[in-house]
């Protein structure tokens, strides 16, 4: 019995493309994409900045418990410099500006200061704003302005079950695993499944106070001494 062996069909070969053509194609595509994005960036930049200023203005009110008056201070090399009008343009990397909130329109009854600072998280920067009372060193309120942490895990840092208990705690804060705490006023429970992200929020608060705290204390001593 003879068997006929089928010859495999010929696979069509593709002509080889020189490397320079591949590089050129990707180069042109990249350049065009970059050009397009520059135009879109120009068209949206001012509006995005305005949205950020609005978000900071609202967040300052929120973390200071609804102040009647807000004064912004530029953070100088060794002192706070009061600004004539509240300016909500914050650079959260440099901590260039802090906000004092007052319970009265005259600006006599200080509620505390709002500080906006950031640190790089898993994906991108975590931008946090928090209210801080320099007299008691207590946190008055915390809000996450922006983050790109893992949805369903790290994004729990912006939710009340985590942020709520930080209110009233005293800086320096200490992140502890839930259930491992001893109940001191410095401890903050981290989030199971988002331990690192929640630790970053705590460190952001500690670092911001370490950075701007001495200047706030100096300003407070001067303001209270002058009364």
């Amino acid at each position: 019995m003879s068997e006929t062996v089928a010859t495999p069909p010929e696979i069509p070969t593709r002509p080889e493309v020189p490397a320079w053509k591949l590089v050129l194609t990707l180069g042109i595509a990249g350049a065009l994409a970059g050009l397009l994005l520059v135009f879109v960036d120009q068209a949206t930049r001012e509006q995005i900045a305005e949205n950020r200023r609005k978000a900071v203005r609202e967040a300052v009110g929120e973390v200071l418990g609804g102040p009647a008056k807000v004064v912004s201070f530029a953070v100088g090399a060794d002192a706070l410099v009061r600004e004539a009008e509240p300016n909500y343009e914050v650079d959260t990397v440099a901590l260039n500006r802090v906000f004092a909130g007052y319970a009265d329109e005259e600006g006599k009854q200080l509620l505390g200061f709002a500080l906006a600072y950031q640190r790089t998280g898993f994906q991108d920067a975590i931008r946090v704003i928090f209210g801080y009372d320099p007299r008691t060193k207590k946190v008055l309120g915390v809000k996450v302005l922006e983050h790109k942490e893992t949805p369903g895990l790290g994004d729990a840092i912006e939710k009340e079950p985590f942020l709520g208990p930080i209110r009233g705690q005293v800086v320096d804060l200490v992140p502890v695993k839930p259930g491992d705490g001893t109940g001191t006023e410095h401890e903050v429970d981290t989030i199971t499944g988002a331990t690192i992200s929640s630790q970053w929020v705590v460190w952001i608060i500690n670092e911001a106070v370490a950075k701007a705290g001495p200047r706030i204390d100096a300003w407070l001593a001067q303001a209270e001494g002058g009364r």
Partner: peptide
């Protein structure tokens, strides 16, 4: 960028 600008 567009959503960040016009529908934050």
């Amino acid at each position: 960028m567009s959503l960040a600008a016009w529908t934050p």
